[in-house]
């Protein structure tokens, strides 16, 4: 069963005398551990797609299911298994990477010590252990991506949504970062949706799709033979 399933989703916005069709009849399935990259230029419907998948916007038509549950009916606990990550977040100055990564854990009442430990582990996993006690203003763009990724995976989500994962990143650092995201997704069975204005984020994607004028083009569902059965890490069931 797909972790994320959009069925014939459409969304329109009213603008005075006009109507803008943001998404038209979009269907999309993503399996455990699968990395799907959706590219689309300005006005293609990317932001609307992200909002609908993240549950902050409801479609006019169609259904969105997450882990088999209609997203609009999902409990807060289930919704927290969706991690949304973009690089426009502006971490407060003075807060170090470790505290920043631990922040989502405080929201679910994880103890301070345990949160610190898990944040360190997440930073290690993304190759940013040495940033633990550094401030955001010291980070270069690829390090911002690593910290953002650590923060997104610290709660071990089932679905990771990453908008513009390589925006502003030095071209030579792009592919290693994308391979890192893919490695984590495959290893931990996290269904991953990457979105970007161009195709720079395709490396490591298992499927590549295109949003064009609100229409989603490409293989919107994984081929049966390609469905990777990845188990959730043992650490999750023990938590």
């Amino acid at each position: 069963m797909s972790v994320l399933a959009l069925e014939s989703v459409s969304k329109r916005y009213r603008r005075g005398h006009r109507e803008l069709i943001a998404l038209r009849d979009v269907s999309l399935e993503i399996e455990n551990g699968e990395v799907v990259c959706v590219s689309g230029g300005r006005g293609a419907g990317r932001t609307t797609l992200l909002r609908i998948v993240a549950g902050t916007e409801r479609p006019d038509e169609g259904r969105v299911r997450f882990a088999g549950v209609e997203l609009r009916d999902a409990s807060d606990a289930l919704r927290r298994q969706i991690a949304f990550c973009n690089l426009r977040f502006l971490p407060a100055h003075g807060r170090d990477a470790c505290e920043h990564v631990a922040m989502p854990l405080h929201a679910i009442k994880v103890s301070h010590d345990q949160a610190g430990l898990l944040a360190h582990r997440a930073l290690e996993r993304v190759g940013a252990a040495d940033l633990a006690f550094t401030s955001p203003h010291e980070w270069i763009p690829s390090e911002v991506v690593r910290v953002a990724l650590a923060r997104a995976i610290v709660r071990e989500p089932r679905l990771l949504i990453f908008d513009e994962p390589t925006n502003g990143v030095d071209p030579l650092e792009r592919d290693p970062l994308l391979s890192l995201i893919q490695g984590i997704a495959h290893e931990s069975g996290i269904a991953t949706l990457l979105t970007a204005g161009d195709t720079a984020s395709v490396t490591g994607a298992d499927r590549v799709l295109r949003l064009s004028g609100g229409e989603l083009l490409g293989r919107t569902a994984p081929a049966v033979a390609e469905v990777v059965e990845l188990r959730r890490p043992a650490s999750e069931s023990s938590q």
């Binding site: 395709v202 490591g204 499927r207 590549v208 295109r210 083009l217 293989r219």
Partner: peptide, 16 residues
């Protein structure tokens, strides 16, 4: 055009 897009996206998957 949709078939053409599908061919381009498959090519991108091979590139990826």
């Amino acid at each position: 055009l949709r078939r053409h897009a599908a061919a381009c996206l498959e090519e991108l998957e091979r590139i990826a």
